[in-house]
Nucleic acid binder design. Sequence first.
DNA 1: ACCCCTTGTGAGTCCGGTCTCAATCCTAAT
DNA 2: ATTAGGATTGAGACCGGACTCACAAGGGGT
Lengths: 358, 358
Amino acid sequence: MSSNGSRRREITVADVAKAAQVSKAQAARALGNYGAVSEEVRGRVLAAAEELSYRPNELARSMNTGKSNTIGVVVGDIENPHFGLATRGITDTAKKSGYNVILINTDEELAAEVEAVQVLLDKRVDGLIVAPASSVETKHLQHVHESGRPLVLLDRKAEGLDVETIAVSMIDISYESTRYLLEAGHRQVAFVSTLKTDSAYRAGMVLDSTQISERLEGMQRAFSEIGLTLSEDHVRLNAGDADSIRNITRGLLLMPEPVTAIVASDGLIALSVVEAIQELGLAIPDDVSFLMYDDFSWTRLTSPPLTVIAQPVYEMGVAAASALIRQIEGRKPVANGPEFSARLIRRGSVAMPRTARV
Amino acid sequence: MSSNGSRRREITVADVAKAAQVSKAQAARALGNYGAVSEEVRGRVLAAAEELSYRPNELARSMNTGKSNTIGVVVGDIENPHFGLATRGITDTAKKSGYNVILINTDEELAAEVEAVQVLLDKRVDGLIVAPASSVETKHLQHVHESGRPLVLLDRKAEGLDVETIAVSMIDISYESTRYLLEAGHRQVAFVSTLKTDSAYRAGMVLDSTQISERLEGMQRAFSEIGLTLSEDHVRLNAGDADSIRNITRGLLLMPEPVTAIVASDGLIALSVVEAIQELGLAIPDDVSFLMYDDFSWTRLTSPPLTVIAQPVYEMGVAAASALIRQIEGRKPVANGPEFSARLIRRGSVAMPRTARV
DNA sequence: ACCCCTTGTGAGTCCGGTCTCAATCCTAAT
DNA sequence: ATTAGGATTGAGACCGGACTCACAAGGGGT
């Protein structure tokens, strides 16, 4: 009873070598497929390995090759389909090139992100993909970069960090979609985002996220172009859980001069905003127009289907992984990396505001 | 220029030891917090480590402790919010106990799963959480289990594999929800699932997924209770991409005696089914009733909001991780692990079928 | 027949930690 | 003063592969 007494200790090259009656070095060569090995020996070793069902210890291997074939991914929240999709793009691509992915969630907390990066570095990952929680507080990323470890940022740029970044430029699309709202007659337009800040939004304040800065910049540009300004009071940050989003939405719609259009910064926010609107007994787009970032399938199922700003999230994940792997393998960056841009998909959630109608 | 000339080679215990003028062994003890170390030495070592910003190499550490503080997670598709949420539960819990997570996607391909498991084993993860693609083909899992590596299954049981499994029992809830449909007057009920099979569904055929088997069993029980049987032709498996789901849905609704209710096996399928229904110009629930597994937020936003079978996905992720970590740390299983059950949330997508109305 | 070069091979070192073991200190007890 | 016994400490083995080095054999060229 025990053809393979493989209890506890694992099979190592030494075991295989013994079984094949060759030196450890030869066995290692045959198995690792390097150096010179006679057919004869190779055969014996491979057979022995098969027989013992030998499996190399990747840890040991990594230790002296210095390569772990693993990349670390740090995102704010995988539960958010935006990151889910991006992660999918990353893992698909990584797998194709023989890399594994260690995933760490940060809940968009800077402290968690700093720790996550540290942990991954300690595990000697070959490179990192980070969707930074903050575009301003980037010491830890700076550190990674300086230590020479390949690093690619996803979704958001980091202030003063010259690192390859895969992100959609938000200014133009934000400008375009704001114009779309303005042309429909909206003047009271709100923007709701989860971005955490110490104080309420004030024009010109420095934000932690370049994404959000850019979006606001685009909105402002559209407004100022027609001689108006985006009201500070209509920019609501710190929209955390469903409850706070609900309150924010109610606030925006119940104020003396209610907003006539709301722009949701991501899919999660959108859900709560739309729900709050429905709760108030208001109709989209008759009472309020609605626009959101991220094109999820369900946005086509609501009535009316929602007008969205679609970002090539999966493709960006792919691009981030490709770029990182390229860096890891020391290849030169391609001349013109793909440029990603978002596009406005007009469905049914934007219409003329009540006030503008005859 | 170069306060810390930390280029290339990383700082090791040996470096710290030298800087602190003690032996490597002592430095290691002080750093690793084991063995006896005088306050004096500890101080010097810690200071030196700080100064050099030493970071232990987890790989090396893992290699001779045999622990990697990493757990491997194998899921069919993170992009599916079902797994997204579960993964979130897993990572949250793992992090709390100091474990990291390596995530691998299998696209529900058995071959990919086998490889994924192998890769994780090679990386010497401390344990595995797998949502098995097949409940029947389980040699690779058997192998893991026999090798003594902690293993927890998620969502689906594996035939003849005595391994801790965190899953919702589907029979009762399926029975309950089918009764709900039958009581509303439906007789032509369809079930649509992605489950891959070699041939079309036939009653009694062995399915790869215990989840699906159980659901069908529950449906059949409800049918036979009132002297009817669930038509084989109404059980549609192999619903892969959006297109095939669309075709299946059209098929079900355009056949001579169309189904009056459709049950979607998961959120992704639901999306396409609902879309196909809308495309056909049919209304839910007036023309077709609709029921789906998984309670995603967006199901409350459609009109009507969808009736769903909610599973405590996040909690199951938490439970799976807890169970695995318990196993890894060699603690006894708690007497009565939490039992998970799904519940039917009646919203607005189920009504009397046309045929049953006056 | 002699030298050079290309394989093939085994011994042993190294990666960066952990851990065993024997030697050295120190302090309190005899 | 002497000594037992615990606290410290350094040397070195070890984890499981990769890789360097020195050396033996076989082949070709002249």
